[in-house]
C-alpha cells in the first residue's frame, strides 16, 4: 500500500486514493477545504480548486516535486509522496486567491441568505478571504427561479461546483437540469424552466455548498442558529428515513439529510421526508445532533448534545 506524508504526518492508504481522502483519513487542520468534491457523488471534484496542495516529492521512484500546485481531490497518492498542505505559504496564498475568484460574482447577501451559518463559502471566506474586493466590474446577476414547488434557484450565488448536476444525474432516472453556456456565461438551468419533479430532487439543496439552491418551504422562516438540530428517523418506503429535524420549541421548521463533518450526505432522503413531514408525530426523535462547538449553530444552545466536538 502506498505511504504518503502530508504536513509531516504519514499514513498508508489504498492504491488509487486521492491526496484529499488520504488527508481526511489523517484528519485535523491539514485537510484541504473542498467546495466541489463530494465523496458520495461519482465524478465530482476538480472544479473549484480550493483543495490545492503542494507535492514536494512525487514518489520514491521519481522524487522530483510536481511543478505546479495540484488539486488534491483529483491527484492520486504514490508510494513515498510528500505533500505540503496547510503549512505551506504558497498553498495558503493560492487558496486565498481561489476564494477571491469564487467571490467575484457572489452577491454577499449573507444576512438574507437561508444558507448563512452552514455555508461552505462563508467558512472558506472566513478562513482565507480578504475583507475587501479588487473586482471593479459589474457582477453578473440573475432573476430567482422556482424549480418546482420546493426548490428555489438563486443563480447569482452559484459557484459552479456541479454537485447538483451530479446529484440529479446519479440519484434520479432522467437528467433534468445541467449547466448551459461557457465561462462567465455558464449557468445552472432546467430545460426551459421545467420543474424538477423527481422524488429525490430535494437533495440538491443539501449538496449545494452555497445558498444557490434553497428550500422553498423553509424560505426566510428562521435562521439555522435559532433552531435545534435533532437526529430523527421515520419508517419511509422510498428512502432510508434517517434525517435531521431542525426544531424550535416543539415545531419542526425544516428537515435535512445527515451531513458528516465535511458536510457530505451519505444517506440521501426523499422529498416526502424533506418537505412534507413537518409534524413532530411523523418522526421518532433520537436526540440532539452533535454539532461542532465552533459552529454558529451551536451558539446559545446549552443542551449537552449540541456542544460536543465532532
Amino acid at each position: 500500500m502506498p505511504k504518503v506524508t502530508i504536513d509531516g504526518k504519514s499514513i498508508e492508504v489504498e492504491e488509487g486514493t486521492t491526496i484529499l481522502n488520504a488527508a481526511r483519513q489523517i484528519g485535523g487542520e491539514l485537510v484541504p477545504p473542498a467546495m466541489c468534491y463530494y465523496s458520495t457523488l461519482k465524478g465530482s471534484g476538480g472544479k473549484c480548486r480550493t483543495c490545492l496542495v503542494k507535492v514536494t516529492k512525487g514518489s520514491d521512484r521519481d522524487p522530483r516535486p510536481m511543478p505546479k500546485l495540484m488539486a488534491s481531490c483529483q491527484t492520486m497518492v504514490m508510494d513515498g509522496m510528500e505533500v505540503a498542505s496547510a503549512t505551506d505559504e504558497s498553498v495558503t496564498n493560492a487558496r486565498a486567491a481561489v476564494t477571491e475568484f469564487l467571490l467575484i460574482n457572489h452577491p454577499l447577501d449573507c444576512p438574507i441568505c437561508d444558507q448563512a451559518g452552514e455555508c461552505h463559502l462563508q467558512d472558506l471566506a472566513f478562513e482565507h478571504g480578504k475583507s475587501n474586493t479588487r473586482f471593479e466590474f459589474e457582477r453578473r446577476t440573475f432573476e430567482k427561479i422556482d424549480i418546482g414547488p420546493y426548490i428555489k434557484l438563486h443563480m447569482t450565488r452559484c459557484i459552479m461546483c456541479w454537485r447538483c448536476v451530479y446529484t440529479a444525474q446519479q440519484l434520479t432516472p432522467e437528467r433534468v437540469h445541467g449547466i448551459i453556456g461557457r465561462g462567465d456565461h455558464a449557468e445552472i438551468s432546467t430545460y426551459i424552466e421545467k420543474s424538477v419533479e423527481s422524488e429525490f430532487s430535494g437533495n440538491v439543496i443539501d449538496v449545494c455548498p452555497v445558498g444557490a439552491l434553497t428550500d422553498r418551504t423553509f424560505r426566510f422562516k428562521s435562521r439555522v442558529w435559532f433552531l435545534n438540530p435533532m437526529d430523527a428517523h421515520r419508517d419511509c418506503p422510498t428512502c432510508s428515513g434517517k434525517a435531521v429535524v431542525w426544531m424550535y420549541g416543539g415545531d419542526i421548521y425544516r428537515v435535512t439529510a445527515r451531513k458528516d463533518k465535511y458536510g457530505e450526505v451519505h444517506d440521501f432522503i426523499c422529498n416526502t421526508c424533506r418537505f412534507e413531514k413537518k409534524d413532530k408525530n411523523d418522526w421518532i426523535v433520537e436526540g440532539p445532533r452533535a454539532i461542532d462547538q465552533h459552529s454558529v449553530i451551536s451558539q446559545n444552545h446549552y443542551d449537552q448534545g449540541s456542544i460536543t466536538v465532532v
Binding site: P111, R219, K221, R223
Partner: peptide, 22 residues
C-alpha cells in the same frame, strides 16, 4: 433591518427575538 439574526445570536442576555418575512 433585514432580520439576519446576528444581533440575537450576539446578545448575551438573549433579549432579542425576531421573525422574518419576505
Amino acid at each position: 433591518c433585514t432580520a439576519c439574526g446576528l444581533c440575537a445570536v450576539a446578545c448575551p442576555a438573549e433579549a432579542i427575538t425576531m421573525e422574518a418575512a419576505e
